[in-house]
Design a protein around this nucleic acid. Structure first.
Lengths: 212, 212
DNA sequence: GTCTATATATTGATAGAC
DNA sequence: GTCTATCAATATATAGAC
């Protein structure tokens, strides 16, 4: 049993090569079908190994699931570097900041889906502090970026940046997960991509959110 | 087999008393844990009956799941009557329209959760047209209400009401599903309830969305 | 570390009495 | 309509060879 279930959520796991291959194969499966929707047989088939070997690396299925979440959290966290000042000039700052995050979601859809599954649903007995931590970090950094824009005068100073952040995260989440359905609605016939539609929504919202 | 899987999604089901009790017991379970997270044994225990009796009323587990979705869709649809003109006067129209919908979500959390699970995740082999229909109806009606507000001069006429609708639905969904996590963030220490926070967010957005 | 083979519990679903 | 008893399949997990 190389993994401790009581380790801090943030602490990076030390996975052997074999364990890492299993986690990488399991993560997209769990992301697509959830904990109880994926069997050890499915994972063994995906990784090209045996069921017994999975139980050699992980004490049970839940431990593997938790490790998969830890793995994608770590992966996403590394992508959350702040935007360089040089990239912030020109255009609508909200469209830029939000668009960057939406693009990250589409860049790693499996990781995002697995984490969102925990945030929105919550699987049986999984500690939510694990996903709450990455959400909080993501959110706090986003609020900080918005405060920077307020100081720079590109976003109105008389509004709560947390409310703007939550609006943008909610919109991005909605577009990421429902665009296939939304695209069939006549009301969105004029928008080709979720990115374009999200940008249009933010431009609309900005009429009251930004100076200049 | 009293149920046809090929019946139109909108057509109301004619459920016997026993079948209705099973569906009512199954719906919150499916809402909380998904299709594969709930066993027939779980449902039998919840309804206080036997497994065999479930298979007497429904040909298989999937048919029961579909019927549960149909049931909650029907339940939610009946709550979607348009707002009377008399109730629309005074206050921020966006806060009023959005708050009414958010309250509906908290009033029937199991139904909402089950439908959102279909919208956001999609269970194995379930026809999405069933949930897409209620989502489209909900969305279309909301856009219509926003157009009414535009005509009445309470909402800016130069913006696409669909973008406002999607923003509000995204915000409501986010608050409904993540408030327990958000409430722990320091950025939201000033808001006691998701309703209050949603209202504050809309007041902020309104500074550019509404006239007056 | 990886495997085959196996143990054991739980799954969805059926048979047939009442 | 509801039940007990049972089925076959699949689930998680283990034993032990290599």
């Amino acid at each position: 049993m190389p993994l401790s279930a009581t380790r801090s959520p943030a602490e990076p796991a030390v996975l052997s090569e074999g364990a890492r291959r299993i986690v990488c194969a399991a993560a997209p499966l769990f992301a697509a079908k959830g904990f109880s929707g994926v069997s050890i047989t499915d994972i063994a088939a995906a990784v090209g190994g045996s069921k017994a070997n999975i139980f050699h690396h992980f004490p049970n299925k839940k431990a593997l699931y938790i490790e998969a979440i830890r793995f994608v959290c770590q992966s996403l966290r590394s992508r959350l570097e702040p935007v360089a000042d040089a990239d912030r000039a020109g255009g609508n700052p909200l469209v830029m900041l939000a668009g960057r995050r939406l693009q990250q979601m589409f860049d790693e859809p499996d990781a995002v889906r697995l984490i969102l599954r925990e945030v929105f649903v919550g699987e049986k007995g999984i500690d939510r502090s694990l996903v709450a931590e990455i959400l909080q970090q993501n959110f706090g950094q986003f609020v900080g970026e918005l405060r920077d824009e307020q100081r720079a005068g590109r976003v109105r100073r008389d509004i709560d940046p947390a409310l703007v952040a939550i609006t943008i995260l909610a919109l991005n989440n909605f577009f990421f997960r429902t665009w296939k359905i939304l695209a069939r609605f006549e009301e969105f016939a004029g928008y080709d991509t979720p990115q374009a539609c999200a940008a249009a929504a933010l431009e609309t919202l900005s009429k009251g959110l930004t100076n200049v």
